[in-house]
């Protein structure tokens, strides 16, 4: 791959790092602590690509067969 990013691949869904306010909103919305969210490794290629730090939350927007768009959140962990 020349010049492009992982995100350009058609099979890689949209990943974004949440701001602190957004994080708070998500945690409030689902009434969860960060430990109760699904995880993603800090070393995951996509996490590196978007420069996510350990402890941050990544928002993943996928195309869904059933719902059109679906949103998931993952918290970045080390190792």
């Amino acid at each position: 791959m020349k010049g492009g990013t992982l995100l350009d691949h058609e099979l890689v869904p949209k990943h974004e790092v949440l701001t602190e306010e957004e994080e708070k909103a998500v945690l409030r919305k689902y009434k969860v602590s960060k430990r109760q969210l699904p995880k993603i490794k800090y070393s995951d290629p996509i996490a590196r690509e978007i420069g996510a730090e350990v402890g941050q939350i990544i928002k993943i927007t996928r195309d869904s067969k059933t719902a059109g768009k679906s949103i998931a959140y993952r918290v970045v962990i080390d190792q």
């Binding site: 689902y30 969860v32 109760q36 699904p38 869904s64 059933t66 719902a67 679906s70 949103i71």
Partner: peptide, 29 residues
């Protein structure tokens, strides 16, 4: 709230089946 969770409250799906539809109450899925 439509999420699928296990016993510790860890979220498995943020919306059941991504669309939150109970197929037995919907129409062919």
């Amino acid at each position: 709230d439509g999420t699928v969770r296990e016993t510790r409250g860890v979220i498995v799906q943020f919306e059941y089946g991504e669309d939150g539809v109970d197929p037995s109450r919907g129409d062919y899925g």
